[in-house]
Design a protein around this nucleic acid. Structure first.
Lengths: 342, 342
DNA sequence: GAAATTTCATGAAACGTTTCACAATAAATG
DNA sequence: CATTTATTGTGAAACGTTTCATGAAATTTC
């Protein structure tokens, strides 16, 4: 005479175990309950194969144990790595990750932010580009790389130190004339500090440096022209290049190689991000590595923090340097690789 | 005397508009309502800045408009691309994507599958490795690359044709002795058809071929040995290599280059996946491109299909070939790139 | 113009939890 | 042993929707 149609509810469990509804709730939520009661309830849960209904749970408690993550996309290796690390960090705490790709679209970004108001998520972690996102003051919101104002914590790696480190590394490698390459959004975001850090590092090491910044509107082949101008016929105006991202570094490297130059023999190239595309510790180029694991951990920590007043406005996490070559020695380490090779 | 503490509910809207609760519900859900009523309700919604509570909605309707996507990780470019395309396809239909990285872990996979039973999602799209996942028969579930049995649609690219295409391409490029390289899981999954397709293609074009398959347990440097054996001192036992993934192709390429060989001048290398890491149409190596957009679209289509009986057991989607070099001509196209260069 | 029919707003019931005032039992106290 | 105190199970109320039987109003029909 049981209703077989739908999934069992707490009421069913209570009836089966011969206890009250509230008792089942306590057992399910790990609240203190008499030992014999607990056993009876757990047996009933097992027998009926009961699963809590998270809609009902959310309706009462206003918690979904899910966090929305806003990223422009997942194919950029840095974003992909962030998504992965955030998923891990959230999972460890029993939270689910709602991933939203915004495509740098301010409207999409705002739409996703609004989602939290429909109680779909308990908080938001966002790497966004809309400078005037409207966020409810009491909405748990944490940004990556973009400082949005007081009350909204921003987590970033120490971009300034990263720029400095790049300069020092190039100096250590014997470079004498270097350049910083960047495709610039004019946003006042944290990654912009890479430039000043690099500048400072060059000054400290008495390195000649040049800045090549292409504004948003400029075509990419501004860089091609730049490279042709300074490297044509092995001209080698620069012996070291610091590229604002690995993405750019990789492209520059390809172009230089197609011009007959060798990296790093002729030109040293250092990128930024250090997102491993193969999950095994190798990098496509030498790079300043962002600690995506620590960034993710911190973001999750902050977004789940109870006392909003204690949240710091800005958290900077230390970067490191990684060599990008694949030598036959390092190849040995690849056996532990887990990058989806079938 | 309004309660300012929490968000406005339908009841508040009804009171404000002077209509019944059910009328508000109809307006919110786009059901037929008298024009004057609709206007009044919409005004009230606007005024109160009302947002539906999706917990309550889910509790009644058993729908969350969210789909769980199971992938081993997001840093593998192919998975990253899939995640991105799935997000797009779901977004277009008003669905949210719950992304779950399973790390090839059968237990995690099963755990996420169970999630659907807690009513957290309306369906699951999974690229999984657990051969005996337990899925409720009536749970909308669609797999990528893994045929799990009748009733569970599998979406994949035409791996057989892809293998064939690789062989033909190598033949067209003038290769005479080629090899297929793979790190093998023994799973009977769709990607395994790449080998037989390649084999068939080689036979059709009278290409000498060799298969090098490393089992799961084998260390990666089995490949190093293989490469040393056949390419040491420009030996060039093979003039073309078909690698089962771009990942592997890229690694092989790096090793060969570190051995003093040039790609593609000395050895042609073709990978598989064609996941663009920079979102701009360029590839890290020549490759058989999987149509991740079509795969994603089909997965979403199938998982949201009302009539489960109409779902096909297996859907194969056409692959294509892409050249992997970055020439200065192609560099011009990079200006439209959107890969997160700051 | 009265009766039959259609249209559509109404509001109570239900969805499956959590919470909390209350009751019942057990333990501690003098 | 009676009384106070602490402990813990109980079950009704509430969360904010959707749904549907009800009835009022508008429309059509003869």
């Amino acid at each position: 005479m049981k209703k077989m149609s739908s999934a069992p509810t707490m009421k069913d469990v209570a009836r089966e175990a011969g206890v009250a509804l509230g008792t089942v709730s306590k057992v399910v939520n790990g609240l203190p309950v008499g030992e014999n009661y607990r056993i009876r309830v757990e047996a009933a849960i097992e027998k009926l194969d009961y699963q809590v209904n998270s809609y009902a749970q959310g309706l009462k408690s206003n918690r979904t144990y899910s966090i929305a993550v806003l990223l422009p996309n997942t194919f950029n290796p840095f974003f992909a790595d962030l998504a992965y690390q955030l998923n891990l960090a959230l999972q460890r705490r029993g939270y689910k990750m709602l991933l939203c790709c915004t495509g740098y679209n301010p409207t999409e970004e705002q739409e996703y932010i609004n989602m939290v108001r429909q109680n779909k998520v308990d908080g938001i972690i966002g790497l966004t580009y809309n400078p005037n996102l409207v966020v409810e003051p009491d909405t748990p919101y944490v940004t990556i790389d973009r400082y949005m104002g007081p009350g909204i914590p921003c987590v970033a790696s120490d971009n300034y130190a990263g720029g400095q480190m790049a300069a020092e590394k190039l100096a250590d490698l014997g470079c004498r004339k270097v350049a910083f390459l960047r495709i610039g959004s004019s946003l006042t975001n944290e990654p912009n500090k890479r430039r000043s850090g690099f500048e400072n590092g060059c000054l400290a090491r008495q390195l000649n440096y040049e800045m090549k910044i292409l504004d948003d509107g400029d075509p990419f082949d501004g860089f091609i022209d730049f490279l042709k101008e300074h490297f044509h016929n092995r001209k080698l105006d620069f012996d070291g290049l610091f590229c604002v991202t690995d993405n750019l570094a990789f492209q520059i490297m390809k172009v230089l190689e197609s011009m007959g130059l060798k990296v790093p023999e002729d030109v040293q190239i250092i990128g930024f991000d250090g997102a491993r595309m193969f999950g095994d510790g190798r990098y496509v180029c030498s790079t300043i590595v962002q600690p995506t694991d620590a960034i993710a951990e911190m973001c999750v920590e902050l977004v789940l923090m109870d006392n909003a007043a204690l949240r710091p406005p800005l958290v900077c996490l230390p970067v490191s340097y990684a060599y990008g070559g694949t030598t036959s020695e390092t190849a040995q380490e690849l056996q532990d690789a887990d990058g989806g090779i079938f």
